[in-house]
């Protein structure tokens, strides 16, 4: 069922990573993502993996849970690998069959890219595993607060994001119910060619859209009733405040970046 997707859903646990300020985690994730593109040799993966695995270890999120989340993107991963293997050209092919030629360079690039992509997804999902959507949007709102000077509606965008995150599971469940209601009337979503299948989606999408509009209206009213009037004059139940551990975490990020730059200079 679609509801079983675990990718990126908050995993409640009481760990140092969970307790870090979301801003530290957002910046840390960015630093980490950028760092993955800093080097071209396999050596670079040593510090990145040390960094990632220590974070996973500290977060107390079970490794199994993280691997399960990766399953959802296996197709994407395979696709990238195959593209890299087939389309990278080198000098001496290892293998030839009709128009397909596989070079050692292709295998190397595929391996390199595969590891990079896996680390990339694991790293960013670790952030969502350890940060509640509210913290995440709060963090983003604060980090991007300076943009308010340029009339960017930072608070509103953050609020929209957090509502979207709140309603994703609700809508998935609703989709499930609608699908069943139509299947009960003999609808078939599995047979036929791509056009027939696309057409078969109409009986799901129409009720889903109508109910979503209704939901949106209801929700707007519920927010008004609770005196929501934009970001102005709002206080916070959980205001973001840096603590000692957050500065240490920033320090660790700097050290990590420095280590990677050293790898890049000396090992390529």
């Amino acid at each position: 069922m679609i509801r079983d997707i675990t990718l990126g859903q908050y995993y409640p646990e009481n760990s140092i990573i969970h307790r870090l300020d979301p801003r530290v985690k957002i910046v840390g994730t960015l630093v980490y993502l950028v760092s993955l593109f800093l080097f071209k040799s396999f050596w670079g993966y040593i510090p990145t993996m040390i960094f990632l695995f220590s974070c996973i270890h500290l977060s107390k999120v079970p490794f199994k849970h993280i691997v399960k989340g990766l399953k959802a993107v296996v197709m994407l991963l395979m696709f990238t690998l195959i593209c890299n293997i087939i389309f990278t050209r080198g000098e001496v092919p290892l293998f030839e069959w009709k128009f397909i030629r596989i070079y050692p360079e292709g295998l190397r690039t595929a391996g390199f890219m595969g590891i990079r992509l896996t680390l990339l997804i694991t790293g960013s999902s670790l952030m969502t595993f350890t940060t509640t959507p509210t913290q995440l949007t709060d963090g983003l709102e604060r980090l991007f607060a300076p943009l308010k000077l340029f009339k960017v509606p930072v608070h509103e965008v953050a609020m929209m994001m957090s509502i979207a995150l709140r309603f994703i599971p609700v809508l998935l469940e609703e989709t499930d119910k609608i699908m069943k209601a139509q299947q009960a009337r003999g609808a078939d979503f599995e047979e036929g060619n791509i056009f027939q299948r696309a057409k078969a989606m109409v009986p799901i999408l129409v009720p889903l859209f109508i109910s979503s509009f209704r939901r949106a209206g209801d929700l707007a009213m519920a927010m008004e009733v609770r005196c929501y009037h934009g970001g102005e004059g709002r206080t916070r139940m959980k205001p973001l405040k840096y603590k000692g551990r957050d500065f240490i975490a920033y320090g660790v990020q700097l050290l990590y970046l420095a280590a990677l730059i050293l790898v890049r200079i000396f090992l390529g």
Binding site: E174, K177, I178, A181, Q182, R185, P203, P207, I210, S211
Partner: peptide, 8 residues
């Protein structure tokens, strides 16, 4: 027939 006609 499911509970909410809105679903179908």
């Amino acid at each position: 027939v499911f509970q909410y006609p809105e679903h179908q």
